Simulated scan of single mutants.
Amino acid sequence: MKALVKRIQERYHYAWVVLKGLVKTDFKLRYQGSMLGIAWSVLQPLMLFCVMYVVFAKFLRMSDGTPTYPVVLLMGISSWQFYNEATSIGLRSIVDRGDLLRKIHFPNYIVVASATIGSLISLGINFLVVFVFALFNHVHFTWRVLLLPLNFIELYILALGTALLLATMYVYFRDVSHIWDVLSQVLFYSIPVIYPLSMVIDNTSLGSWGPKIAKVQLMNPIAQTVQDIRHNFIAPETQPTIWTLTSNPFLRVIPLVLAAALLVLGVYVFRRNNRKFAEVM
């Protein structure tokens, strides 16, 4: 057993050193030259939250009817901001690091992984802000907060799988960047990030279709993950998830299967094409 562990350490030691170096470099360069620096990783989602809260909660009256809705909205925006940032930066990571890949030999996937880990660090900082915000809003935490690491792991798997796919396609087709900008906007409004899922479930104009549409929305693993984070961290009673909307075990596991399938597909496509990257670029 010790020999096996030693072989694994020797095999991946160099990759781990390169990964740590790239993560540090990327995170420093991200805010280089700006007066506020790393503070932007907190200010950006906070400013977006303020705009969304005023427009949707105050003017359009979108709310789940609970005092914790501002925290729910902020948590949703922070989670989406991570996914959007990780995929957008990961998409360009191979092309942006083309010169480095041609000069130094190391596993190409490290470049994509470092881009997504940098976004994960920003998510961690944002989560601390949301936690402080939750304390001021008197959120009553339950034992479900222990499930949050699993939720964040799933969210990272989704971001990494998507980034690997997009990074591979972007090497060959630069139009992928523009297509993804449009698709990400469609995805953003198709899942309950800025509006509560209860607005779909209780919508009288939809009739009996409301709960069915909500279930379909939660088949999307991103929507399922965002709702699970809100449910486990903030308000188990008012934040429905796929686990509470249906007792069908098949429907419950669909988002998890899709998340795992996305990562497997991303790894497969990336490994199949990564040896050609230097030639194409």
Results as ranks from 00 to 15, higher is better:
Met1Phe: 05
Lys2Thr: 11
Lys6His: 13
Arg7Phe: 02
Ile8Arg: 15
Ile8Asn: 14
Ile8Val: 00
Gln9Ala: 09
Tyr12Phe: 07
Tyr14Gln: 09
Arg30Ala: 13
Gln32Glu: 15
Met35Ser: 04
Met35Val: 07
Leu36Thr: 00
Gly37Val: 04
Leu43Phe: 14
Leu46Tyr: 13
Met47His: 04
Met47Glu: 05
Leu48Phe: 12
Phe49Asp: 04
Cys50Ser: 14
Tyr53Ser: 04
Val54Phe: 14
Ala57His: 09
Ala57Asp: 09
Ser63Phe: 02
Pro67Tyr: 12
Thr68Phe: 08
Val71His: 06
Leu73Ala: 12
Gly76Met: 05
Ile77Thr: 07
Ile77Asp: 03
Trp80Ser: 04
Asn84Thr: 10
Glu85Met: 13
Ala86Glu: 05
Ile89Tyr: 11
Ile89Asn: 11
Leu91Ala: 13
Arg92His: 10
Ile94Trp: 02
Asp96Leu: 03
Leu100Met: 15
Phe106Pro: 11
Pro107Asn: 11
Asn108Lys: 13
Tyr109Lys: 10
Val112Ser: 11
Ala113Gly: 00
Ser114Pro: 12
Thr116Arg: 08
Ser119Ala: 15
Leu120Pro: 14
Leu120Gly: 14
Ile121Glu: 03
Gly124Pro: 03
Gly124Met: 02
Ile125Arg: 05
Ile125Phe: 13
Ala134Glu: 01
Leu135Pro: 00
Asn137Arg: 00
Val139Gly: 06
Val139Arg: 01
Trp143Asn: 07
Arg144Cys: 04
Arg144Asp: 07
Leu146Asp: 01
Pro149Gln: 09
Asn151Met: 03
Tyr156Lys: 15
Ile157Gln: 01
Leu158Arg: 05
Gly161Leu: 03
Thr162Val: 11
Thr162Ser: 15
Ala163Phe: 08
Thr168Ala: 08
Arg174Ala: 08
Val176Lys: 01
Ser177Leu: 06
Val182Pro: 04
Gln185Asp: 04
Val186Cys: 10
Phe188Met: 08
Pro192Trp: 02
Pro192Gly: 05
Tyr195Val: 05
Pro196Cys: 10
Val200Thr: 04
Ile201Ser: 04
Asp202Asn: 10
Ser205Lys: 00
Gly210Tyr: 03
Gly210Met: 02
Lys212Pro: 11
Ala214Leu: 10
Lys215Val: 00
Val216Gly: 09
Met219Asp: 06
Met219Thr: 08
Asn220Thr: 12
Pro221Thr: 13
Pro221Cys: 06
His231Phe: 08
Phe233Thr: 12
Glu237Asn: 11
Pro240Ala: 13
Pro240Asp: 09
Thr241Pro: 09
Trp243Val: 15
Thr244Glu: 01
Thr246Phe: 09
Thr246Ser: 14
Ser247Asp: 12
Pro249Ala: 13
Ile254Cys: 11
Ile254Arg: 09
Ile254Tyr: 09
Val257Ile: 15
Val257Asp: 07
Leu258Ile: 14
Leu258Val: 15
Ala260Leu: 08
Ala260Met: 05
Leu263Lys: 02
Tyr268Pro: 03
Asn273Thr: 02
Arg275Ser: 03
Lys276Gly: 00
Met281Trp: 00
